[in-house]
């Protein structure tokens, strides 16, 4: 069954770019949900059937790290895999994201091939 994806980024352009590259990567997916920050993302996760989350790190209100931390504490949604999509390349921040349960990371700007390589196995 096709997977539903949630894209979390404060830039709507970036969300469009990501959803476009998902399509270009030839990955099959169901619905695409969007959220502008961690708080919105939590609300979507609580109300919709989401299989995979792609999230930015640097966002206003609730950033990607806080989002992971908050999500880990909510039983109903804590097992949904999250991939970080970010400009941050520092091992520290990616390491922190992973220690909080992030399933992987994609560095901006990325190519459809890279998307396929990282997300393909899950789709």
């Amino acid at each position: 069954m096709a997977k539903n994806v949630l894209l979390v980024d404060d830039s709507s352009t970036m969300r469009k770019i990501i959803s476009r590259s998902l399509r270009q990567a030839g990955l099959e997916f169901g619905k695409i949900f969007e959220a502008g920050d961690g708080q919105e993302a939590l609300a979507v996760l609580e109300s919709e059937e989401v299989d995979i989350v792609l999230s930015d790190i640097n966002m206003p209100n609730m950033n990607g790290i806080e989002f992971l931390r908050e999500k880990a504490g909510r039983d109903a949604i804590k097992d949904i895999p999250v991939f970080m999509i970010s400009t941050e390349t520092g091992e520290d921040i990616i390491g922190e994201a992973k220690s909080l349960g992030a399933a992987g990371a994609l560095k901006k700007p990325f190519t459809p091939d890279k998307v396929n390589e990282v997300l393909g196995p899950l789709m």
Partner: peptide, 13 residues
């Protein structure tokens, strides 16, 4: 930071 960070991340596309 948000402004320049966005440019850094998205400008490349």
């Amino acid at each position: 930071y948000r402004l320049f960070h966005s440019i850094k991340g998205t400008g490349g596309y």
